[in-house]
Design a protein around this nucleic acid. Structure first.
Length: 871
RNA sequence: GCGGUCGUGGCGGAAUGGUAGACGCGCCAGCUUGAGGUGCUGGUGGGGGAAACCCCGUGGAAGUUCGAAUCUUCUCGACCGCACCA
């Protein structure tokens, strides 16, 4: 601090660069945020968790937003008397580390741990109230070794299966590709056309829990409805029927094909049957016919993602096989191979009813297949009814359908299923869209799957005593494919059962496995077992989980499954990992393009206002014009990123936190703007001046507040209303509203005029403490000046309570409407009765003019809000 | 394609059936400061009017209601997820 007597202006400036590290050190010295593995029970526990970051190397604004949100919750809940666990770790396995190894020759391990060191330092500068003693990375052998133990337990419990499944195969690189590595059907490096290839892979039996995962969504009261809806749709329960169609002249062993349908009521509207390219019937057709084989091969080049398949033009191939209709004697229909039929869903075969299904309709039109309407929309004449340019998918009455004629759709479904069951050609079933979770990845930088393949014994689990199966350090990335596979010695082991030479599984786990139980590991991060019951039983479930909406389905569903699997194997007591969920929006920024089409970083650009008031941009050096592009998610490729480190260096962590909270509701996408941060910075300085400027006139803490009148009472009311409003806003995650209320309160303190020092002190102390969850460093700095010598830091101080007596207003302002249109306002005493309010309202001059002498038919009074006259 | 979400001033938003635009950013005017990201005061949705005040206005269209940004239906646009990115 500078000497106030010689430089009076400099001490009115808050020196965040000195203050922030000082308070971070003090929190650390006092261990304010550390909690024990087993809470002492003196206070209720509260577990706050943000989705842990992938260590890409630098934190980005999305992290700043995520961890600021979580930190506000953690600090607020701590103040509300909870023992708060708030840990941090690293989702450290994954593809980017292997890409770095291939592109730059850096070992994935070194790359990852270096990145972690950088990002840890950056996070620490944000002043987050984290218990850093719990930190781990999923690539630590102490973590993934425990994951291997969990896998073996799941296997014993029957939750692990080995089956065939399809992967994207790059025939040039000889590598399995992730969906994101397939661009327009080609491998991202080789450019080769990608093919589907079948591999034997490990699966977790998540489908065993499908009904429970669906039903339990109802118990998740503090989850956003939209996430629950998305999960429910993903799990996709549908009731329907499995129908077996006979192939009268079938190739050997294929006398029947089974179809799943949700519309057995439309069986009489059938005009074809279609199978997926991977279906045995397709294989039979391909074996017999080169043209069919070519079509199947073409479908294989389509990639494995559902979006790619469904967006592709609907195409098919007539196999020449025919199936018999289950109810119509002697009637047969053609069997097609269709690129929109998914092998993974239902039975990989459908019956086509073009009259009442969008995709079947499009397909039938294209290939000239028959379209028979069998559902009559309500109010239509059965004689004159014909389908126009679209199928009819709604409810109605069944027609042209023999024994189903005249029934409504639900009844017809039941009747059709009864008939199918009666003749042994089908059965009513519940079908699920959810598929088992394939966890095998043909990659190095992941957790090795602890399995040994023995020629004699088959697939053998690695004994618990031989865990962990460590990744070898000496790996060669110069060859394509999985380095574990071409490692000279790693995979060669003796079979644990027969002792003969065998080989290790060289696949590693999907990184979603790593993130499916880390929240449990945080409760006892150094334990020899995966989890310690005393710790997880006390801390779980996570009370508030915070992260991006992009994880709404997969990560959250896998974690919900994993938690159930851990319960089944005795590791946990709970079924649901996250009692409360909050999904934040993305951080966006304008993008900029130079005249020659290059993307530009924001710091390369400067702005001007044109005559019409619009913004124009040009290059800082060069003066050439720049196109201002759309506001979109920050991404490296568009260069519309802002480096949090630079922002914190320039404005401080509190400013970055304050701006990111103030801009808009946290569940929406926010736009990062330079002027917005500058405004937040000015506010931190204003609060600092407001408090430090008043210090000389303040009486000691605890001075009497009795008998405040006039301006003093007004300020006290503002203080207590702000306490109530900020509390409510924080409880409901309306952080931008909390910020706005604090702004208003700062304005009110500035405008308060002459008030007793004790009243001013009360207001300033409330200002500091209410803003502490958002701006913790500034709050500590000002608290230490307001209360020199006080032992307690703001970080460990209890939350403020509003005095109800000061929340009540003496008079109310009511809006007066005539026919719903605002015509005036009236001031009434808070205690006024309805008759008095109506007569005051009617007496208003403007109201009288609007009524214009017409009789009042109805008087409406909403207490505290509005009066409305209907004339 | 399927599923989900969001559309309010120049901009971010507030108000979730009851005074639309709180609060902030930006802009305008004035004062202050005077080595330049300073502070303070006032103004700021559109149109009309000297003013009182009136009309219009929450992507678009229709509806429910005394009253709709909010509820319903349709529609347009943007964004997120789609199972090997994390």
């Amino acid at each position: 601090m500078s000497d106030a007597s010689t430089t009076p202006s400099s001490d009115t400036r808050y020196e965040f660069a000195a203050a922030e590290p000082r308070w971070q050190e003090e929190w650390n010295r006092r261990q304010c945020f550390a909690v024990p593995d087993v809470p002492d029970g003196s206070r209720p526990k509260y577990y706050v968790l943000e989705m842990f970051p992938y260590p890409s190397g630098k934190i980005h604004m999305g992290h700043v937003r995520n961890y600021t949100l979580g930190d506000v919750v953690a600090r607020y809940k701590r103040a509300r008397g909870h023992q708060v666990m708030h840990p941090m770790g690293w989702d450290a396995f994954g593809l980017p580390a292997e890409n770095a190894a291939r592109e730059r020759g850096i070992h994935p391990g070194k790359w990852t741990y270096d990145n972690i060191a950088n990002m840890r330092a950056e996070l620490k500068r944000m002043g987050l109230s984290l218990d850093w003693s719990r930190e781990f990375a999923t690539c630590d052998v102490e973590y993934y070794g425990k994951q291997q133990a969990l896998f073996l337990d799941f296997w014993k419990a029957g939750l692990v299966e080995r089956k065939e499944s399809w992967v994207n195969w790059d025939p040039v690189d000889g590598t399995v590709l992730a969906n994101e590595q397939v661009i327009d059907g080609r491998g991202w490096r080789s450019g080769a056309l990608v093919e589907k290839k079948q591999l034997s892979q490990w699966f977790f039996s998540i489908t065993k829990y499908a009904p429970e995962l669906l039903e339990a969504l109802q118990t998740l009261e503090r989850w956003p409805d939209r996430v629950k809806t998305m999960q429910a749709n993903w799990i996709g329960r549908s009731e329907g029927a499995r129908v077996r169609f006979r192939l009268p002249e079938a190739p050997a062993g294929l006398g029947e094909v089974e179809v799943f349908t949700t519309r057995p009521d439309t069986l009489f509207g059938m005009s074809f049957l279609a199978v997926a390219a991977e279906h045995p019937l397709a294989a039979a057709a391909a074996a017999a016919n080169p043209a069919a084989a070519e079509f199947v091969a073409e479908c294989r080049r389509m990639g494995t993602s559902e979006a790619a398949i469904e967006q592709a033009e609907k195409r098919g191939y007539d196999t020449g096989f025919r199936v018999a209709h289950p109810f119509l004697e002697g009637v047969t229909f053609p069997v097609w191979i269709a690129n929109f039929v998914l092998m993974e869903y239902g039975t990989g075969a459908i019956f086509g009813c073009p009259g009442h299904d969008e995709r079947d309709f499009e397909f039938a039109r294209k290939y000239g297949l028959g379209i028979t309407p069998v559902v009559l929309p309500p109010g239509q004449d059965p004689a004159g009814f014909a389908l126009g340019d679209a199928p009819y998918t709604g409810d109605g009455t069944i027609i042209h359908s023999d024994f189903l004629d005249g029934l409504d759709v639900p009844t017809a479904k039941r009747r059709a299923i009864e008939a199918l069951e009666g003749q042994g050609q089908g059965t009513g079933v519940v079908n699920w869209r959810l598929r088992d979770w394939g966890v095998s990845r043909q990659r190095y930088w992941g957790c090795p799957i602890p399995v040994i393949h023995c020629e004699a014994c088959g697939v053998v689990p690695v004994p618990q005593s031989q865990l962990p199966v460590k990744l070898p350090d000496d790996v060669d990335f110069s060859k394509p494919g999985n380095p574990l596979d071409h490692h000279p010695s790693w995979k060669h082991v003796d079979c644990p059962q027969c002792g003969k030479a065998a080989r290790r599984e060289t696949d590693t786990f999907d990184t979603f496995v790593d993130s499916s139980w880390y929240f449990a590991r945080f409760c006892s991060p150094r334990a020899e077992q995966p989890v310690v019951r005393g710790a997880v039983d006390a801390w779980l479930p996570v009370d508030q989980y915070i992260g991006g909406i992009e994880h709404a389905i997969l990560h959250l569903l896998y974690s919900r499954f994993f938690t159930r699997a851990m319960r089944e194997t005795g590791h946990l007591a709970v079924a649901e990992p996250f009692a409360g969920l909050f999904t934040q929006g993305m951080v966006t920024h304008e993008s900029y393009k130079s005249a020659d089409g290059r993307w530009l970083y924001p710091e390369e650009v400067e702005f001007n206002l044109d005559a019409a008031g619009g913004r124009t941009a040009r290059l800082k050096d060069g003066n050439t014009p720049v196109t201002i592009g759309r506001v979109e998610a920050m991404s490296k490729s568009k260069r519309n990123t802002v480096d949090p480190g630079a922002i914190i260096g320039r404005y401080g962590a509190d400013t970055a936190r304050w701006f990111i909270l103030s801009d808009n509701p946290p569940e929406r996408d926010m736009e990062w703007t330079e002027s917005g941060v500058a405004g937040a910075y000015r506010f931190t300085q204003r609060v600092y001046r407001l408090v430090t400027g008043a210090l000389p006139g303040l009486p000691p803490a605890g001075s009497s507040l009795e008998g405040a009148e006039g301006a003093a009472r007004k300020l006290r009311q503002a203080t207590h209303r702000t306490i109530a409003a900020v509390t409510e806003a924080l409880e409901s995650f309306a952080f931008n509203v909390a910020v706005a209320r604090i702004h208003e309160f700062a304005n009110a303190i500035g405008d308060a005029g002459e008030v007793p020092g004790a009243v001013r002190r009360e207001a300033l102390e409330a200002l500091v403490r209410l803003s502490a969850p958002m701006m913790p460093h500034l709050a500590e700095e000002l608290w230490s000046q307001l209360r020199p010598g006080e032992a307690e830091m703001v970080a460990t101080l209890p939350w403020l309570e509003a005095d109800p007596a000061l929340l009540k207003a003496e008079t109310l302002t009511l809006a007066v409407q005539v026919l719903g249109k605002l015509r005036g306002t009236i001031e009434v005493p808070a205690a006024a009765d309805e008759a008095m309010i109506f007569s005051l309202a009617e007496a208003d001059e403007n109201v009288q003019r609007s009524i214009a002498g017409r009789p009042i038919r109805k008087r409406i009074h909403v207490p505290g809000r509005v009066v409305n006259f209907v004339v």
